[in-house]
Simulated assay, not measured.
Amino acid sequence: MQATPYLARRPHQSQFLTLRGLRHHVLSWGQPQPGRPSLVMLHGWMDVGASFQFVVDALQQDRHVVAMDWRGFGLTDSSGADSYWFPDYLGDLDALLDAVSPEAAVDLLGHSMGGNVVMSYAGVRPARIRRLVNLEGFGLPETIPAQAPGRLTQWLDELKQQPQLKTYGSLQAVAERLMKTNPRLSPAKAAWLAPHWSREIDGAWHILGDAAHKRSNPVLYRKAEILATWARIQAPTLWVEGDSTDMTKWWGDRYPRADFEARLAVVPSVRSVTLKDAGHMLHHDQPEELAEALAAFLG
């Protein structure tokens, strides 16, 4: 039996902005308020901006909130290229802030991949950020130059293949997929997310993500460059994680927790919060507790 979808307390408004030549889907809640910064939220890999609806509903004070579907996700155009490049996310974010808050600094929040983007952005555009929030944007394991030939070979081999994303026979099947990925997600929330996360084409439900995102990145992740960027962050920073998140599930022993703690230590001002009974999708698992942490930090 299909669940009744979650009822949003503060329904979002959708608009489309052309940023760097691509049509970006931008969601907003409320209106800009003089003297109060907008809160800009950026989602993670294989997610969409609507993913933040539950947290926005849990905020006790109505404020202007903006979320964007990254290029190649949700209703935003795909890049049209055969691979996606991390610097493009920084460029898209820069253009978004030019459009929605050209004069005033914003409060900036990112989850997972989005958390990594906002950390880098806050280091290269420090004056544009008043407060910074990173929801489990851990970064990636360190690499060494000797890995470059193999990575490039892997990328070239993948270019000869057409990546595919699985399709589903119904919205209910999409909702079940979301709950399989995150067992803490309630049927009502999954039913609400499913039509924002997929669309029907010729009788099948397709995930709103460009399959090209699955290709390996030929450019190695360079820890030294990340540390140099994070060290330039000026905004007070809030790090939030779930108590059930296990980094070893993603990287095994290639990325020890102590390595991440050392990276975070270079950020000048950090406050850390751990949410109970929450995993990587903590904004779905504990939106009320996350909203409380945001209220206390953002002021």
Rank of each mutant, 00 (worst) to 15 (best):
L42N: 08
G44P: 07
W45T: 15
D47A: 14
A50G: 11
S51W: 14
S51P: 08
S51V: 06
S51N: 15
F52R: 13
Q53N: 15
V55D: 12
V56T: 15
D57H: 12
A58F: 04
L59P: 00
Q60G: 15
Q60R: 15
Q61I: 09
D62N: 13
D62C: 10
D62L: 12
R63W: 07
V65C: 07
V66W: 01
A67D: 13
A67F: 11
D69K: 02
G72I: 05
F73N: 11
F73T: 15
F73C: 13
L75R: 14
T76L: 03
D82K: 02
W85H: 12
F86Y: 08
P87Q: 08
D88A: 08
Y89I: 10
Y89H: 09
L90C: 06
D92I: 14
D94S: 09
A95L: 03
L96M: 00
L96N: 02
L97W: 00
L97N: 06
D98W: 00
D98C: 01
A99M: 04
S101Q: 03
P102C: 00
P102Q: 02
P102L: 01
P102G: 00
A104W: 01
A104G: 05
A105D: 02
A105H: 01
D107C: 01
D107S: 02
L108N: 00
L108S: 04
L108A: 00
L109S: 04
L109H: 04
L109E: 05
H111W: 06
G114N: 06
G114E: 03
G115Y: 06
N116R: 11
V117E: 05
V117L: 00
